[in-house]
């Protein structure tokens, strides 16, 4: 029986090899044009800032220290870098809210598309992506035109006599949320749709036959079945949202920094590339850990059927 086990083992080894070949192109492209160059960033985080940007080739941990600690410029005391934490927390909060909000709006939308007749599904799907042929900046500006004081909503409400003074929506947190949902909606809808499209509606039917309420059907049957889509969609929204700054600054007014602004400041006018590099690696590590935990947990509870 040893041979049979050996054969199986060989087959398994072969399969794993095939799987490596299959993933090679993606891994190589990312290695060359994304991850590999990041090693430069890692290296830079341990160097000394150049006088006018860039770095000097002198080892220093100052960049990393100032991620977490800051020396007060006035009384020279060393304290926890609360400004960095405040900014990071703002980005994190916004990203979480944006993810939940896009899920709330995206889930019904994806469900709606997935339950259309086979003929029209593609049309609905394309309708979701068409607005995204205009780029992010312009899309955000379009939202601005709608919600500003002289914008569509306020003008309409005033003309209808519902209000006499425009409601200040622009430059509020509400505006940022509207913009984020608007900008990231398809990133949620597309993966959701991809996993809902093959949802077996007989299961839904069976649920109703067993006198389940709609909420129960949704929670117990539909949601577990489309979980991979929810995971994918949440990742696609959450991670870019953490790095978002165009939408927050156009609609929120840019008075408060997002984490990406802080990093950009170091690579730009602040001329502290090592700090910028250390900040980016910090955020990357946190996101990466959160992602792994999330994927591990959700992958374990996946429902397999058929």
């Amino acid at each position: 029986m040893a041979t049979a086990a050996e054969i199986e083992k060989q087959a398994e080894a072969r399969e794993i090899r095939t799987r490596w070949y299959l993933s090679a192109p993606a891994l190589i492209i990312i290695l060359l044009a994304a991850s590999g160059p990041l090693l430069i960033v890692l290296l830079y985080s341990f160097l000394t800032p150049g006088p006018y940007g860039d770095v000097q080739w002198k080892f220093s941990t100052e960049g990393w220290v100032s991620v977490f600690l800051e020396r007060d410029i006035f009384d020279d005391t060393l304290s926890f870098a609360s400004a960095h934490l405040t900014i990071f927390w703002r980005s994190l909060k916004l990203a979480l809210m944006a993810t939940v909000a896009t899920l709330v709006f995206g889930f019904p939308t994806a469900y709606f598309i997935a339950t259309r007749s086979e003929r029209t599904r593609d049309i609905w799907l394309f309708l979701i992506t068409i607005p995204f042929w205009t780029n992010l900046l312009i899309r955000t500006f379009a939202v601005l035109q709608v919600i500003r004081n002289e914008g569509l909503i306020n003008t309409a409400l005033i003309n209808l006599g519902i209000i006499d003074q425009p409601i200040q929506m622009l430059y509020t947190d509400f505006a940022i949320m509207v913009g984020m949902v608007y900008v990231y909606l398809p990133l949620m809808v597309l993966p959701l749709y991809a996993s809902m499209e093959k949802l077996d509606f007989r299961l839904v039917e069976a649920g109703y036959d067993l006198y389940a309420t709609r909420w129960q059907v949704l929670k117990r049957i539909i949601f577990p079945l489309v979980r991979p889509g929810v995971v994918a969609g949440s990742i696609l929204v959450f991670i870019p949202a953490i790095g978002a700054y165009v939408t927050p600054s156009v609609l929120g007014g840019g008075k408060n920094m997002m984490f990406a602004n802080l990093i950009e400041l170091q690579f730009g006018q602040g001329r502290n590339w090592p700090l910028g590099a250390a900040l980016s690696i910090t955020v990357m590590a946190i996101v990466m850990m959160a992602l792994l935990v999330y994927v591990r947990n959700t992958a374990g509870s996946e429902v397999r059927h058929g």
Partner: peptide, 20 residues
């Protein structure tokens, strides 16, 4: 592999920009 493939998502654009 999973982490590696998703890695480009996790880096703020400015950082990838500077690195590249």
């Amino acid at each position: 592999k999973y982490a590696f493939i998703n890695q480009p998502l996790m880096v703020p654009e400015i950082v990838t920009g500077v690195a590249l």
